[in-house]
C-alpha cells in the first residue's frame, strides 16, 4: 500500500512516514497541499493521504476539498493528522470529505488503531 504524507514540518513528515513504513506502507512526502496535488496530478495515486491542517500555500482543508472535487481520486482515503483539535474543526474536516482525524500529539499505536478502523492496515501489519 502507498501513502502520501502531507505536512509542512519535515520532522513531522519523517515521524508519520516512519510509523507508516513500520506498518508496511511505501511513502512519499509533500510539504503543503498544492505540492501534494502536483504529486497526484503526476499520476502517483496513493491508497492513503495523511494531511496536516495548517500549512503554507494550500492548507489541509483546501486539499481535502480539491481531492473530493475530482472523481478520479474518489478511492483515496484521507486522514487528517493535525494539532487542530477543536470540535468544530474536526466536523469541518469530516464534512469536507476526510475519513478520519488524528490529533497531534499521537502515538504510532493510535495511528495504527485509526488505520485498522478504516481497514487500511496492510496485511503484514495485521498479522
Amino acid at each position: 500500500m502507498r501513502a502520501l504524507v502531507i505536512d509542512d514540518s519535515r520532522a513531522m513528515r519523517r515521524i508519520v512516514s516512519a510509523a507508516l513504513e513500520g506498518f508496511g506502507y511505501e511513502t512519499r512526502q509533500a510539504g503543503h497541499g498544492q505540492e501534494a496535488l502536483d504529486v497526484l496530478q503526476e499520476g502517483y495515486v496513493p491508497d492513503l493521504c495523511t494531511i496536516d491542517w495548517n500549512m503554507p500555500v494550500m492548507d489541509g482543508l483546501q486539499f481535502v476539498s480539491a481531492v473530493r472535487a475530482n472523481p478520479a481520486w474518489r478511492a483515496l482515503t484521507l486522514m487528517m493528522v493535525t494539532s487542530e483539535s477543536e470540535q468544530g474543526q474536526i466536523v469541518r474536516a469530516l464534512a469536507a470529505g476526510a475519513h478520519e482525524y488524528v490529533i497531534k500529539p499521537f502515538t504510532a499505536d493510535a495511528l495504527r488503531d485509526k488505520l485498522a478502523l478504516l481497514g487500511m492496515l496492510p496485511e503484514e501489519a495485521v498479522l
Binding site: S9, A11, N54, P56, S83, S85, E86, I103, K104
Partner: peptide, 24 residues
Amino acid sequence: GEIANVVGGNVKAALPGPSTLGLP
C-alpha cells in the same frame, strides 16, 4: 517549531473558540 505547534494547538483547544492558529 513543530513542538510549539502541537502544544499551541492543544492550548487553543482548551480556550474558548472558535480560534485560528498561525504557522509556527
